[in-house]
Design a protein around this nucleic acid. Structure first.
Lengths: 254, 254
DNA sequence: CGTTGTGTTGATATTAATCAACAAGTGTGG
DNA sequence: CCACACTTGTTGATTAATATCAACACAACG
């Protein structure tokens, strides 16, 4: 069995939040090393602890479009993404959807859950993850305070990001929201060749993340292209030409 | 010195989130007991641990309208509200404001912070709180895993609420937002005599919490009054007449 | 009493949603 | 290989929800 408990350094849409973020909990290098060995490693664990944690973990893979966490189901497991990207979302009875976040390699799912999951998770591209039972984790944490500390840091980080997103959803205009999203995604995603930014999600996903419609996303992206803030190299691939100006827009300065 | 680390059972705006919430971390009774003794008690601590924690805590009081946490300042302290209500908010450079939450007796402030605070806190009525240095807390937590576990539970709860609020801000309409707010506040606030609901915040605060304007709040409240969903007993005091219908509106069912 | 702050209500403006048409890409089957 | 449906994205026209602007009511307070 393989296992990984890791977290990328989260980057908020704004400088201020970025300053407040904790240092990387697990470096990208460590993640890569884990993957190569087929045994993902929690950076704070070693020896016996690691072995014990491996006992309670299971590795799985899901294909694009598959839902692997469903809102309302008993929250029996924690997840750690080891490859791919997933969207996390909540639904209203009439089908309205709010994407609460995107999870990438190293991210941890299931912190924001009580007895049942309060969100669903769907793979945007093939996703590999490491899953383990919350009941067993509880016992493990009792003997491994270092691990608990990391989880608290993770939760803190997520809380900072969530509040930043509240500001975005409650008070920013469409162009400010999209600018914020592009910049924060640029910082989270590994840059492609030639500084290209890959967007594994559809326009619908972006719209549901930013509280807008696909038409508004499309129009706003077109406006950014026309003013040379970004360039589009493929349908889901673009280059940020003027990050400074984009950051000013994201912050609401113009 | 007095000290308190406590948390009320958080109640989300929707049933689903409520089911998911952890059991009360500190009962209202325990809080009351703490207050009476002028030594607030963390329910998971006792004896030596409690004495040690008391060493690093300071009790303060701030008046209505006073800001006691400022976004961007070094996040040196944790806070635990022991009396009163405060609003937590973030600002955009041009003055737009997003209230990210309201903190009441027993609530804990400062979890969502890194090197600097990412939100400000202002007293809506006279607030008493217990404050202690994060640097000292860190050392304390090392020796008191039970305490750390509680903090993780608190953070988990806040995360659930934050995601519920994202759904509200991103996808709910004005009447749905206000209905959600009234119900969740009803569950958090101690009910006044005759089931009256006290709202210590102004229309502006509610508007900034729900991502709306004061005019929309006022109009929507008037509509609720006209359809007998609520009745107003004073400017900041009302009664929920039809909670069932209000819940249906909050959930987006009509 | 006037003044100020807060809330309400009405008229109008604006942003983004909705409705609609079409373009481009993808996959299928003949 | 092409015709076809089907999905996703773009753009335009119109509508709807909420913001903005404005007037006024009311209470608190000096």
């Amino acid at each position: 069995m393989a296992l990984s408990i890791a977290a990328r350094s989260a980057v908020a849409g704004q400088m201020r939040a970025s300053e407040a973020a904790s240092p990387p909990l697990v470096t990208p290098e460590a993640c890569a090393r884990c993957e190569a060995r087929e045994v993902s490693v929690c950076s704070v664990l070693s020896g016996d602890d690691l072995a014990r944690l491996s006992h309670i973990s299971v590795v799985s893979t899901v294909g694009e479009g598959e839902t692997f966490i469903t809102e309302g189901d008993p929250a029996d497991h924690f997840f750690n993404i080891t490859a791919g990207t997933a969207k996390l979302y909540k639904l209203l009875p009439d089908g309205r959807c709010q994407v609460t976040g995107f999870a990438r390699t190293g991210d941890f799912l299931g912190l924001a859950a009580g007895a049942v999951y309060v969100f669903s998770a769907e793979a945007l591209e093939p996703v590999r993850f490491c899953r383990f039972a919350r009941s067993k984790l509880r016992g493990f944490l009792r003997d491994c305070p270092e691990m608990e500390r990391r989880l608290l840091d993770l939760a803190r980080n997520e809380l900072v990001l969530a509040q930043e997103q509240m500001l975005l959803l409650g008070r920013k205009r469409a162009r400010e929201r999209l600018a914020s999203f592009l910049l924060s995604w640029q910082q989270r995603a590994a840059p492609g060749p030639g500084n290209r930014l890959m967007l594994p999600m559809t326009r619908t996903d972006i719209a549901d993340y930013l509280g807008l419609t696909i038409e508004t996303i499309s129009r706003t992206l077109s406006a950014f292209k026309k003013t040379r803030l970004i360039a589009q190299t493929a349908l889901s691939e673009l280059i940020i030409l003027n990050g400074t100006e984009l950051a000013a827009i994201a912050a609401g300065d113009r």
